Simulated scan of single mutants.
Amino acid sequence: MKLEGATTLFYKEVLRFWKVSFQTIAAPVLTAVLYLLIFGHVLEDRVEVFPGVGYTSFLIPGLVMMSVLQNAFANSSSSLIQSKITGNIVFLLVTPLSHWAWYVAYVGASMVRGLIVGAGVFAVTVWFAPMRFEQPGWIVVFAALGAALMGSLGVIAGLWAEKFDQMAAFQNFIVMPLTFLAGVFYSVHGLPPFWLEVSHLNPFFYMVDGFRAGFFGASDVSPWISLAVVGVAFAAVAAITLRLLASGYKLRQ
């Protein structure tokens, strides 16, 4: 009975972002399209990362994955910090929900939001350049794993933060830089040797690179290596998240 009540909480979390879908879904899609228009227009005829793949085609999967990651993180983190600051978190604390139910509901809703935004970005941007689907299995695997990992990280951030300033710092100084430096707009093989090695320490890079491999069948590293790195990262973050939820970290104070 560890998951009893998880469905209700999951439904509540999905409704929370769906009620303001213009802000939570439409706005990120518009932002990604603006990135595409600016970078694609400037670099389309100057950069070819993979043979036979135009820069705009290369850019689209990166923007899709970036949108998935950022919005999955934003959903769980914003929900928890808002509940803590407004005080309505108490209505969840008095229920017999287990930490597993909390985890499944918050991370599950984050995955839904991240994947919906990602699908919206792809549906709009795919008209700007020809796309291929060489290995669609990788697309599904990395989109789901990436969204789950970032949803879990969002729960950690939401539990840790006590005010909106701390949450903004977490997102602006950790999530945002790691996302932008993950090869969304470029191939890491074009970097100097030192920065190439630094990029390989960024787990976000493996999410983006593995996801892009599903479209073109080409990537900077093997998708199996990316899967191993992302899988280990997800397992570690999920374990930490569950431990914090089980202990009531910064919830029962």
Rank of each mutant, 00 (worst) to 15 (best):
F180I: 11
V112L: 11
W224C: 00
I116G: 03
T86W: 13
A74T: 10
L3Q: 03
R16H: 07
M131I: 03
T8I: 13
P203L: 05
V175M: 13
E134T: 00
W160A: 05
E162Q: 13
P61R: 11
D45H: 10
H189Y: 10
T24D: 08
L201F: 11
Y206D: 02
Q82L: 12
L59K: 06
N75I: 01
I81H: 06
R243K: 13
Y206H: 06
I89V: 14
A119K: 08
L93A: 07
E134G: 00
V230G: 12
A218D: 02
F204L: 09
E162H: 08
N88W: 15
F170R: 00
L181D: 04
P28H: 14
V53P: 11
I89C: 02
W18C: 04
R16A: 12
P51R: 09
Y55V: 11
P177E: 12
A161L: 13
S76N: 04
V53F: 02
L97C: 09
A109W: 05
T24C: 05
N88I: 08
P130N: 04
T56W: 07
V237Y: 02
L145H: 05
F170E: 01
P223K: 06
S152L: 08
S83W: 13
H99F: 11
Y249V: 04
S199C: 12
V68I: 15
A239C: 05
K19W: 09
F133C: 00
A246V: 05
L9A: 08
K163P: 07
F50S: 04
R243Q: 15
K250F: 09
S78W: 13
I81D: 06
F58C: 04
E197W: 14
F50G: 01
G154E: 01
L80Q: 02
R212Q: 10
E134C: 00
F170A: 05
T86M: 12
K163R: 15
E48G: 03
L3H: 05
V229W: 00
V112A: 13
P203S: 06
A169E: 12
S79M: 07
S219A: 15
V68M: 04
V141Q: 00
I25S: 12
Q253T: 13
A147D: 05
S110Y: 01
